[in-house]
């Protein structure tokens, strides 16, 4: 018997302007004979409400794509547009401000500041942005409450489990008005059940309007995304579609 599963409700097609857009993005390391093309002309648009997973063998350019999209590295060619702004037109200060206000980064090893509590970690980027300490802390607690993490608000990172730290990191990535979260192997150090909780949270934040790009080599986690992009040798070789358009599953029951 071959499995027959009802088609899930397809997610709505994105209609808003993309939060992140990569246009013909290239990144080359070295010159001449030592030249290495890490990325060869990547085009990708990520809309509000959309979670995109990037998969590919090691060395395919996944991490380069993410660091460029987050403004942590400089492209060799092409454009990176975040919330309508070409980041190459911003100065150092402008880029730092855009990164702080618009982009949240989630790392495999969480990167929380050890000397700050969970709530303080989340509040920090807002405080750096000029929001009053009191308001920033209030926002931080509200976001922890929304994620059912209020009980860890006053704990330091070393008093939390890996999964809790990663969920706090996601809260920090999306506090304030930031709508773009870039996650580099966010489940890499977690067991599968905890990894799933982290993915469910990321999925939930995107369902509420954030745009997410996640690099992962785990198909089980990539499957939480709306779209899976396959990289090979610095190029996008394939991607699954967002909506149920190319669904292989038969709608409804077997009738």
């Amino acid at each position: 018997m071959s499995p027959h599963v009802p088609s899930p409700a397809a997610p709505p097609l994105p209609v808003d302007a993309p939060v992140l857009e990569l246009r013909d993005l290239t990144r080359t390391h070295g010159t001449g004979i030592a030249e290495v093309h890490a990325l060869r002309g990547i085009n990708l648009a990520v809309h509000p409400g959309e979670l995109v997973a990037v998969m590919g063998p090691s060395g395919s350019g996944k991490s380069t794509l993410l660091t460029l999209a987050g403004g942590l590295d400089t492209a060799t060619g092409g454009q990176i547009i975040i919330e309508g702004q070409d980041i190459s037109t911003l100065g150092r200060k402008g880029l730092a401000a855009l990164r702080r206000r618009s982009v949240g980064y989630v790392f495999q090893d969480y990167n929380l500041i050890p000397a700050l509590t969970a709530a303080e970690n989340i509040a920090l980027p807002r405080e750096l942005d000029g929001v009053s300490v009191r308001k920033a802390r209030k926002e931080a607690r509200a976001s922890l409450e929304e994620m059912n993490l209020l009980d860890v608000a006053d704990r330091f990172p070393d008093e939390m489990s890996g999964g809790q730290q990663q969920r706090v990191a996601i809260a920090r990535a999306l506090v304030g008005d930031r709508r773009l979260v870039l996650a580099d192997e966010p489940t890499g150090a977690l067991d599968s059940e905890t990894g799933e909780a982290v993915l469910a949270l990321l999925r939930n934040r995107c369902d509420q309007g954030a745009a997410g790009v996640m690099v992962t080599h785990e198909p089980r986690y990539a499957a939480w995304a709306d779209r899976v992009v396959f990289l090979r040798d610095g190029s996008i070789v394939d991607q699954t579609l967002s909506a149920g358009a190319d669904s292989l599953l038969v709608a409804g029951s077997a009738e």
Partner: peptide
């Protein structure tokens, strides 16, 4: 592509 797409659909149902 086909397998990952199936996983996306199953995962959506699971969620």
């Amino acid at each position: 592509h086909h397998t990952v797409k199936a996983m996306q659909d199953y995962t959506r149902l699971k969620a």
